[in-house]
Every structure is written in C-alpha cells, then in structure tokens.
Design a protein around this nucleic acid. Sequence first.
DNA 1: CGGACTCCTGAACAAATGGACAACAAGTGA
DNA 2: TCACTTGTTGTCCATTTGTTCAGGAGTCCG
Lengths: 227, 227
Amino acid sequence: MTKQPVADAPTHHGNPGNGRKYRPGRIRERNREKILQAAEQEFAQHGYKGATIQNIAERAGLPKSNVLYYFSNKKRMYSAMFDDILARWNKVFTDIRPEDDPAVALSTFIRTKVEMSRRYPLASRLFAMEIIQGAPFLLDHLRTNMREWVRGRAEVMQQWIDDGRMTPVDPVQLIFLIWSSTQHYADFQVQILMVENKAEYEKRDFDHAADFLVEVILRGCGLEKPT
Amino acid sequence: MTKQPVADAPTHHGNPGNGRKYRPGRIRERNREKILQAAEQEFAQHGYKGATIQNIAERAGLPKSNVLYYFSNKKRMYSAMFDDILARWNKVFTDIRPEDDPAVALSTFIRTKVEMSRRYPLASRLFAMEIIQGAPFLLDHLRTNMREWVRGRAEVMQQWIDDGRMTPVDPVQLIFLIWSSTQHYADFQVQILMVENKAEYEKRDFDHAADFLVEVILRGCGLEKPT
DNA sequence: CGGACTCCTGAACAAATGGACAACAAGTGA
DNA sequence: TCACTTGTTGTCCATTTGTTCAGGAGTCCG
C-alpha cells in the first residue's frame, strides 16, 4: 500500500540516528532544489494564479506527478519558495548601530541591495509580484518581521539625526526610497534594458547604478560619499 | 442572421452623418468603461495569465458573454486597457525645456508622479506587472516611445549640468530614481501600509512622501527646494 | 407598428488546470 | 538475498478556462 508519502512537510527531515553514511534526503534535496528554481522562474513571470504546475515541471525537466510528489500542492510550493528566499534575505542584511558612521552604513546598505538585485533578480520580482497582488502569503511577515525591521533601522537613523550627524529627513521614507530605487533594477529590468538599448545587463551597469544611488541619496541626506 | 457584430474594433466609432440626436454608442461606451475598470482591477491583481474573464465579468456585474461581446478576446481587452492608460499618461506629462529652472522642473515632475500614484494606483500596478512579466505587450512601446521620452528629458538635464545649473549626475539614472521611488507608493502600497501600521492611505501621506522625495532628490542633485 | 440596428446571454465545447492514485522502480540496511 | 522506505510516473477526474454561436431582447426612427 503506497500511501501518499511524507511529501513536503519535513523540509530538512534530519537524520534520525547519526550523521554517518545514510542520508535519506540526497535525491530529495537535489530535486527539491531543481523544482524550486523552476518555480521561482514561473511564479516570478506569471504570479501565483498565472503559474501552472505543468510549466514548472517542464522547466525542471520532470513530469508533473513528480513535482507534486515533492510539493503536495501549489500553495505549499509557493510558500516553500518564500521560506527559502526570506532566509537568504535575512542572512545577508547586517545590522546598523547608532555608533556607526551614517555615510558608511547607508552606502553599504544601498550597495548590498543593488547587489541583491543583481544576484537574485527573480527573487526580487517574485517579492514584487506578491506585494502587488496584495501579499496574500506575506501579509503576516510584513506586519511583524518587516515592520520591526524598519522600526529598528529608523530608530538608529533618527539617533544619527538627533546627534546632528545627518540632515533631518524622515528615516522611514528614506528606507522606502532605498528599497524602491535599488529593487527597480531587478523588477523593471526589461524597461531599463529597452530604454538604454541594451540586450542584457553587465556587472558594470550595476556598479554604475550603485555609485549613482550612493552619491545622490547620501548627498540628499547631507552626507559625504565615504572613500 | 446575426453575424458576430463589430465588437471591439471601433473604439469610438463616430456618428456617421451628423451629431444631433442619435448616438449608437451610448450603452456601448458606458459598458466598455465598466468592463475596463473591472479589468484594471483583475489584471492588476493577477497579471495577464492569472486574470480570468469570468472574474472580470463578476467585478463588472455582467455575464461573461456580455464582456466578450465588447472585447472579443482576452488579449484585446488587455491591450485596450493599455491604450487607455498610456493615453492618460501622455496627457499629464508636461515637457521640460532647457530654459526651465531645474529645481522647479524636477520638483514638478516628482510631484506629478506621486499624484499619479495616488490617483491611479491600479494603472501603476498594472504597468509594473506587465514589465515584471517581461513586457510582452509593451515591449514595442518601451523600445520606441519610452526610449525617446527618456532621451529627450535626459538631454535637457544634461544641458542644465553643462550650464552648471545642477550637480553632474547621470540624467538617465536620475529618471529611473524618480520613477521607482514615486511608483513605489502605488505598487507596494500593501507593504507600506503594513510597515506603517495604517489601514489605508490618506492624502497627507502622499503630500508627506512627495515633500520628502523632492527634498532629498533635489538636494542630491545639488539643488535648492523651490518655494 | 415595422424594421434595422444594437445589445444580451445561456448553452456548448475543446483545451488546460490542480490534484489523486495506484502500480511500479530504485535505493538502502540487514 | 529480503523487507522496507523512498522515488517515479502514466492515467484519471472534476473544474475552470477562453471562445463560439444562435437566438432573443431592447432601442431607435420613420
């Protein structure tokens, strides 16, 4: 009797005994990854409703049934993706502290975000799609984690302002400005390429963009570009 | 014999003869509008593939067949929407000229775009969706009209820079910065509301945002906020 | 009213969709 | 080898989807 197996529930169902030779998840892990990557493309391009399991399967080079063996349904596949993406996101973003130099901290923040746009454009678009659609899956995350995240950073910036180390500007709006302007290079890639008449991005385009943003935004906050 | 009628081809098929009493398109015009508005919601929320005619019909309070009477198929409905939106867009945006004051021109540009985000958030999201999806319908528009539009403005800005009326910054990047930061308030509405812990936008939120953007971006370009 | 339109819509349909499932194949530890 | 777990996939199904179509209702003018 081949009951519907464990499927997607245990994301990394750790080795029960020890960690020696037997790894039940080898194939699992590899295929999961393949599927998630395919899903990232499909969902980023068509949104949740527009994406089809069939298409994801084709992108991954697997039969549909096999995809459904790993992720028992579309919804779970979708949220599994965001688990991955948010984890990656959290790993990269460093804290800022009141004693940091505002110019250095902001410029690092901007450059990191541009780098994220360059390295993970699909994740960025996916996130954008989810938000535009009303964030049905991420509402909770926005309401809790992200709100706290913004408040934390905003407080530090306010500290800088109170200490006279930065021109007074609304810190929350500043965060929005940095978010939007940096993500734009990933989300609106096609538009930018068309307008600039290029076939594809090069590394230097991102460097140029990052330089521009650091310069303008820092000056906009009354700061000097750090060396 | 009731052949499939004219359907969507003649957008405003003008009154042949005179313009006195008989207007064959009255109902047509009204329903077209209802449907396009419903379509705007649906497409903005779910993207092209994810939107369904059934849903659009329900939003418009009409039977599906009736919707298809006005727009013979999904594709045409989608592009009819963009015709409307781009027309509206073109109507609003004023030219800038080399003899204009940079500070005034830029601040007008920013405020106009924020106002657009406030008044037509659905159009903004729709546009964002289309671009993220790879702009299958707007590629041509981007390649021609929009590219020219950007080049024209960028040239004027470059003129300002050459005349020493503005700090040297890449004008094209500056346009991207203004686009992204202003649209963000429409496209990422949910995120902003969640982070700021608000139920919905108020007029003053947009005023505040516009003030912030004008201040920071102008200062970032070495300009004084105009009175 | 009559006739010529414009407009409306239920029914039907082929294709696509998310998902269930059972039979089968492969891998694993003893 | 065997017993068991894990992985694979073709097939089936109820719904949903875009689209067609034929007939009917509504509107307008003479």
